[in-house]
């Protein structure tokens, strides 16, 4: 599997750093964001990402209209929601093309899901885009 560029957003600094560390052991490059604005800033910085790992509890998700922004400007960017089970299950329905993974202490589950998503993307787009 080819290493990929990942953008990771989580509310908790230690969680962010831990997950960055864990994912980097898989060979990926991981950029991090603390809030919805930071996600949009990083994405707007010209860098290409293969996957966005998003904790729904990062600040300003609703206020910055993150979902619409992503769907409008980055429609091909895969989205992995890595979060607690939301209070309102309907909240997830809006992210209909995203994958949901409930947060827990074992990072293996996250690594597996990331790998699966990257593989799917690789197959769909072919290797040329990586060249």
């Amino acid at each position: 599997m080819q290493p990929a560029r990942l953008l990771l957003a989580d509310r908790n600094r230690h969680v962010r750093e831990f997950l960055k560390r864990e994912l980097e052991t898989e060979g990926h490059t991981v950029a991090i964001a603390r809030s919805a604005q930071e996600i949009l800033t990083v994405l707007g910085g010209g860098e290409k990402f293969d996957l966005l790992i998003l904790d729904l509890e990062v600040p300003y998700v609703v206020e910055a209209n993150l979902l619409t922004q992503l769907q409008t400007f980055y429609p091909t960017l895969p989205l992995l929601i890595h979060s607690f089970q939301p209070d309102n299950p309907q909240a997830l329905a809006a992210y209909h093309n995203a994958i949901f993974l409930e947060k827990n202490e074992d990072p293996a589950q996250l690594k597996k899901t990331v790998a699966a998503l990257l593989k799917k993307r690789e197959e769909r787009h072919g290797r040329r885009e990586w060249g």
Binding site: R11, N12, H14, V15, F18, L19, E22, E57, F84, K103, N104, E105, D106, P107
Partner: peptide, 14 residues
């Protein structure tokens, strides 16, 4: 509490 607790759990697991 859940947020820091998850962080603790992750580190402990690791």
């Amino acid at each position: 509490i859940r947020n820091p607790l998850t962080s603790v759990k992750m580190r402990l697991y690791s």
